[in-house]
Amino acid sequence: MIAVTFGFARYGYGLLLPQMQAELGITPRTAGLIASAGYASYLIANVSVIWLTVRLGPRAPIGLAAVLATAGMTVVATASTATGAAIGVVVAGSAAGLAFPPYADIVAEQVPSARRAVAWSTISSGTGWGVAVGGPIAIGFGDRWRFAWLVFVVLAVVTGIVATRSAPPRRRDSRRPRLPQLSWTWFICPKSRPLLISSVLIGAGSAVWWTFSVEALHTAGLAAGQAKIAYAVCGAASVLASLSGSLVDRAGLRRSYLGTCVLLAVAIVLIALEGQRFVLILLAAVLFGAFYGAVIATQGIWSAEVFASRPSAGLAAVNTALTLGTISGPAAAGLLINRSGYPTTFLAAASVVAVSVFFCPPSARRRDILAAHQCRATPVRD
């Protein structure tokens, strides 16, 4: 389900953008605005999913995500104008916001605590699976980008049915479900602040890669097929993020997060400086895919610690912060590309990601200080 809603519905736009630009007349500035609009719809869905999950259980938002992913990608596949494509991207983008947070509750309730880090990192790696599958599909269809979107639609329908049937329904009891009335001091406090700030920074820098990497490589001189291969390799490497849970268990949350953020920034620098050297671009794609997935998985593990009392609400807060970054990143990048070109834009994106190392999981000493602080929620309503 994460492969469909993220790998296809959310990141398929960046994968197929060069061909869509040529046929629909999408400029870099417009491309950035469309990507930001898709991330904005993700943000809205990410906020509403808290209410849906509490009221209706995990099955309802997962099922709705499947419907929106299918509808949005169908609109993109049949679009005849940039406006039509934008509408489809916005609808499809909301699917990812609904699909991801419910799995935080599912893991917390159904997976033994000793295996939660591995389980969560495996779920997070779904994005990589989606991009890894989507890349060969896009390469196979070449300039016929509409057919690639239609294949994504078929996969979304099948996966959506299976995922919805597999998700647990709302618990049946005599009491009316209680809606969380959570205060800002619960979401934003000394424990959560570094996590949320780093999420914004990672979102802003990484969204530039997801939106513009294929077009940047094509502009630098790589063939369109090579650029798509690099994108697919990035997705395949993201699957390695499923091992990040084991890495956290061995190296600790703080070291794992610092290392993944640094290597993610290095990957973006490589695409900025070595856009014409295919071998180095493949290395950059592997680094970006593996360590982007690892950063997201590690944020999920970190979020489960910070927001242990309400995992889905906490993960929605983290995703909201990540999305605020992804909204601003492509829009700002589109403007910077027009003025300074792709290399400068990607160096700026790498710098943004690099700053995130200053907002990392706390050291042992800092954890002792934070242990005395309680991030409180206001009472919930019956």
Rank of each mutant, 00 (worst) to 15 (best):
A267D: 09
A232C: 05
G314N: 08
A267P: 12
L283F: 12
A108V: 08
L17F: 05
S48M: 11
S246E: 14
V151K: 08
S246D: 13
I197C: 09
S246P: 01
G252C: 08
K228E: 00
V158Y: 01
L155K: 06
G293F: 02
V90Q: 00
R29G: 13
Q299H: 15
R172C: 03
V279S: 14
V54S: 13
V151F: 09
A313E: 04
A60K: 02
T211F: 09
A227Y: 07
L280E: 11
I137Q: 04
S242M: 15
L370R: 03
L33W: 11
G57R: 09
S244F: 10
A114T: 10
L270V: 11
V355T: 13
Y39W: 12
W186L: 03
R146A: 11
L258Y: 07
L17N: 05
A372W: 06
Y292I: 01
V269W: 07
I44F: 14
A95F: 01
V91D: 01
Q226K: 06
Y342E: 03
S244C: 12
G221F: 06
V380Y: 06
C360R: 12
A284S: 15
I34W: 06
L98I: 08
T378E: 14
G97S: 07
A77D: 03
H218E: 12
F187P: 00
G289M: 02
R55E: 11
G205V: 10
R165D: 02
A265M: 09
A65K: 10
G14Y: 05
G293A: 08
A371E: 13
I44H: 02
Q276D: 11
L17K: 05
A77I: 06
T260F: 13
S198A: 15
F359V: 11
T345N: 00
A232G: 15
F6A: 13
L264Q: 13
A241S: 15
W51K: 08
V118R: 13
V111E: 00
L264C: 11
A156Q: 00
A308I: 10
E274T: 12
H373K: 10
A207H: 05
T78P: 01
R277A: 14
F346E: 05
S192C: 08
A37C: 08
A377R: 13
G32E: 07
G334F: 06
G140H: 07
Y257D: 07
I34L: 04
D382E: 14
G38D: 04
T185I: 02
L264V: 01
L315N: 12
A132F: 14
T185P: 00
G225V: 02
F141W: 10
A95W: 00
A119D: 08
F147I: 11
K228Q: 12
S113P: 00
Q19V: 01
G205D: 04
W51P: 00
L270S: 01
A354R: 06
T53V: 14
V107P: 00
F278P: 02
I26S: 05
N338Q: 15
C189A: 15
G245D: 11
P101N: 11
Q110E: 13
G252T: 10
D368L: 13
S121A: 15
I337A: 04
D249G: 04
A364D: 14
L263F: 14
A163M: 10
F152A: 14
S125E: 09
A71W: 02
P180H: 01
A297D: 07
I197N: 06
I26V: 15
L258V: 14
